[in-house]
Amino acid sequence: MSSVLKSDIGHAVPGEDELIERARAMVPWLRTRAAEVEAARGVPADIIEKFREAGFLRVLQPRRWGGYEMNPSVFFKILMEVGRGCSSSAWNLMILGVHPWEFGLFDPRAGDDVWGRDDSVIVASSYAPVGACRRVEGGYVISGRWPTSSGTDHGQWAILGVMAPGEEGKPPVDRIAVLVPRSAYTIIDDWQVCGLAGTGSKSLQVQETFVPECHTHSLADYSMSDRGSMYLFPFTQVFCGSVSAVIVGMAQGAIDLFVEQMATRRNSGNGKQTSASPYVKDRLGNATALVRSSRARLLMMQIETTPIVERRELIPLASRVAYALDIARVGRECDQAVQLLFKALSARGIYLDNPIQRIVRDVMAASNHITQNADDNAGNLGGFLMGEALPPLQYAR
């Protein structure tokens, strides 16, 4: 896109290359902040403000509310750059930056309520359907405690996951997202973890709160509507793909640091330059291949599916099942990549002043995210290819 283009309410829209260059330019600065972010157990407001100023939080936002309404591939590429600098900061960008895309699925009244006065308002989330939910006239009443709301201190609203109840004694009829204002929940600081410690992924406690129908949408339904073409991608492709994209960035950050460190290190036993070891080179080459393959799968998924949604068609089910595994394997393969590098660092890798050990822990934590469940997604794909039914409320309502 040309920088002379405007969003529907007048914001200049930077081009894809410009946005990616802004992200790349932030990497050295984010590196210097990573230890501070981890120690604080949360991303400082000034880093989020830098992301906002760069336009990253508008990339997926609908033009109707001042966004750029770009292809998710642009957001993926930004995350792959920012992730090289500070894992936790990039994770916050991923979570807080993907939510604007979701407003292409909500009733437009939801977007009006959030951005009617200020189109830069940030929305947090917790999609685990762990709270109580009951149907009432005009919407739902929810209550409970939702965990791991990353970057939630920066949000004025939150999207929560719930199971829409069926008739008494019957299974849930849908898996839905509900939008609630900051006044509806209390933030509980329970984020004490070994990886991604700087994401501030605290819990949200909600008392009995009414959520109007227009503040909900189905997470399971995938059907045609009049929403814009960039919002015809499946929710799981955009959300889960964003998680994988930021993991690619983290792992690439480990590769960058490994190359820098090995350029000056010498073997303490024979005095030779460590980078001359064929085993070090082998580990670096294989780690790089794993990360490049992960990146390629995510971007190829967008290349293959963009023409489909631009024709205003839905992504076929067989492709969606395969893409789910393509996305989920990223966590496993990037974790393998950083472990390959870590083992070549010997004792020097375990010191807290070596940033690679933090990335190792961050990628390990990120690869445990539900979106990175390669085991179940492999089983789903294998079973589907052999004619088995898919899990309920996962690919369709």
Score class of each variant (00 low, 15 high):
residue 186 T to W: 08
residue 194 C to M: 12
residue 137 E to L: 10
residue 280 V to R: 05
residue 229 S to R: 06
residue 189 D to Y: 10
residue 287 A to D: 06
residue 363 V to K: 00
residue 257 L to Y: 10
residue 29 W to G: 14
residue 303 I to G: 00
residue 19 L to W: 02
residue 286 N to T: 03
residue 305 T to E: 04
residue 197 A to R: 05
residue 378 A to L: 12
residue 200 G to T: 07
residue 249 G to H: 05
residue 79 L to M: 11
residue 257 L to G: 06
residue 176 I to L: 09
residue 297 R to S: 13
residue 89 S to C: 13
residue 6 K to A: 02
residue 104 G to F: 00
residue 152 T to V: 15
residue 140 Y to L: 15
residue 40 A to D: 09
residue 25 A to H: 12
residue 242 S to T: 13
residue 373 N to M: 01
residue 177 A to V: 04
residue 286 N to H: 06
residue 126 S to F: 02
residue 240 C to H: 03
residue 391 P to R: 07
residue 306 T to S: 12
residue 312 R to N: 15
residue 279 Y to C: 09
residue 182 R to L: 05
residue 336 Q to H: 04
residue 150 S to P: 08
residue 11 H to S: 07
residue 88 S to G: 09
residue 389 A to Y: 05
residue 280 V to H: 07
residue 14 P to L: 08
residue 392 P to V: 12
residue 187 I to N: 09
residue 97 G to H: 03
residue 43 V to N: 04
residue 159 I to A: 03
residue 90 A to K: 07
residue 294 S to N: 02
residue 148 T to I: 10
residue 372 Q to Y: 01
residue 171 P to D: 11
residue 32 T to I: 05
residue 375 D to I: 04
residue 226 D to P: 03
residue 321 V to C: 09
residue 1 M to F: 00
residue 287 A to H: 01
residue 86 C to N: 11
residue 109 R to C: 10
residue 274 T to M: 15
residue 370 I to Q: 04
residue 132 A to S: 14
residue 76 F to Q: 02
residue 116 G to E: 12
residue 154 H to V: 10
residue 349 G to H: 09
residue 30 L to S: 00
residue 219 L to G: 01
residue 22 R to N: 11
residue 116 G to I: 11
residue 208 E to K: 14
residue 85 G to L: 08
residue 28 P to T: 09
residue 139 G to M: 14
residue 368 N to T: 00
residue 383 G to T: 07
residue 12 A to I: 09
residue 190 D to W: 08
residue 115 W to R: 07
residue 220 A to F: 02
residue 119 D to A: 14
residue 118 D to I: 09
residue 307 P to F: 10
residue 151 G to L: 05
residue 306 T to W: 00
residue 117 R to G: 12
residue 279 Y to W: 13
residue 162 V to Y: 00
residue 184 A to L: 14
residue 397 R to E: 06
residue 278 P to E: 12
residue 75 F to A: 07
